[in-house]
Computed example of a mutant assay.
Amino acid sequence: MANIQYYDVILKPVVTEKSMGMMGDKKYTFLVHPEATKTQVKEAVEKMFNGTKVKSVNTMNLDGKKKRARGSMKYGRTSKTKKAIVQLTADSADIEIFEGL
């Protein structure tokens, strides 16, 4: 297992219609480091965003999409990613980066 610091765990937030709809239930979606564990994701969210308390973390590994080079018969794939859905407790503060979206 790699030695990952908490500021390297969360790569970027996922902004889609489905993830915006889940924000009402205090569920936030992030792309995370592929080798990050659920406990590392929980620790990173609580340290990076003040006043947040994580209830649970669900993670999923996503395979890369198939791509073909333009004008040739070369095939390849995009890189694999990992996504985490973080559920906050009811008395937890909201995450600021999602406000106003």
Results as ranks from 00 to 15, higher is better:
1 M>F: 03
2 A>E: 11
4 I>Y: 05
4 I>G: 02
8 D>F: 09
11 L>G: 05
12 K>D: 01
12 K>Y: 10
13 P>A: 06
14 V>G: 02
14 V>M: 12
15 V>F: 08
16 T>S: 13
18 K>M: 01
21 G>C: 04
22 M>P: 05
23 M>A: 10
25 D>V: 00
25 D>T: 07
26 K>I: 07
26 K>G: 03
26 K>M: 13
29 T>K: 05
30 F>C: 03
31 L>A: 04
31 L>H: 11
32 V>L: 00
37 T>W: 08
38 K>H: 07
40 Q>A: 09
41 V>D: 05
42 K>F: 07
45 V>A: 03
47 K>H: 10
48 M>N: 04
49 F>Q: 04
49 F>W: 06
50 N>M: 10
52 T>V: 15
53 K>P: 04
56 S>A: 15
58 N>A: 08
58 N>K: 15
59 T>A: 01
59 T>L: 05
59 T>W: 03
62 L>S: 12
62 L>F: 10
63 D>K: 15
63 D>Y: 05
66 K>Q: 13
66 K>W: 00
67 K>W: 12
68 R>E: 14
69 A>E: 10
69 A>L: 11
71 G>C: 09
71 G>H: 08
72 S>F: 09
74 K>H: 12
75 Y>Q: 14
75 Y>I: 12
75 Y>S: 12
75 Y>G: 06
77 R>A: 11
79 S>E: 13
81 T>G: 14
81 T>W: 03
81 T>E: 08
83 K>R: 15
84 A>V: 02
86 V>D: 04
88 L>N: 02
88 L>W: 03
88 L>K: 11
89 T>D: 09
90 A>D: 15
91 D>R: 09
94 D>H: 12
95 I>Y: 09
96 E>M: 11
97 I>N: 00
101 L>T: 13
